[in-house]
Amino acid sequence: MAEIAGVVLAGGRSSRMGAPKAGLEWHGSTLLRRVTGILARGLDGPVLVVRAPGQPLPPLPAGVEVLQDPSEGNGPLQGIAVALTVLADRAYSAFVCSTDLPLLHPAFVRRVTRDSDAADVVLPVVGGHRQPLAACYRTSLADAAARLVAADRLRPAYLFDGARVVHLDESDLLADPALRRADPELDSVAGVNTPADYRAARDRPAPSVTVQRFGVLASGSESGDRTVRAASLGAAAAAVGVVLDRHVLAALNGDQMSRDPEVPLVDGDVVTFLSADAGG
């Protein structure tokens, strides 16, 4: 067991948004689908979603586990307690975030979790604000979190008392070259709480990604790299006229393979399309 899991807290009333944030459209996908995909890209461990009791969720990729808060209205600490309890014997730590971070970048997730060995909580501080819903928690905090919820002490900050907390301010975070390159403004923690927030984020240009095509997908004038704007694998495929079916799949940054069109993309990604029919 050496993994770091990912947890998305999908509950919450979304009262200022006026609509459940989890299901908000995001470039042909949903906000929750995007955030779970970003965590899967940034972490080696399982990805969990914690929802409110009975809360409907948009479709999620295979492998994402869904948990449920035991009661409504207890805030994020309850979700943290539920997730850490389930993960206690499966992962040492978990990156926990809310569902309203459409600009979350895998490089941010990796930077925060990199210090997980040194602390019970790795807590980013951006713009002078602590970010408990974009932070990394030791799963051994599960009992403490559950006790706080039982005592009706529902603010995540209570969990920091008595815990070893490493704070990462902007300079700490941006000292990481990968994060500095990928997300220099630390938009990863820019939550969308209101319709105006959402519209502003949604109106931003889709990520700029490089597309490569190999094999028969690269014949003739269609060979060579191309830069396109695409927030998902499906959008990148469409931009270069590739159909993601059983005969085609993609590699993301030369790493994992997928043909799921909703896999989220971020600035700087390299998407490689190739024939799925291997052999030789």
């Binding site: 190999f214 094999g215 028969v216 014949s219 005969h247 024939s275 029919d277 291997a278 052999g279 030789g280």
Partner: peptide, 11 residues
């Protein structure tokens, strides 16, 4: 299609 058009070298 891959092996017909390019052979196994397509890999």
């Amino acid at each position: 299609e891959k092996v017909r058009e390019l052979g196994t070298m397509a890999n």
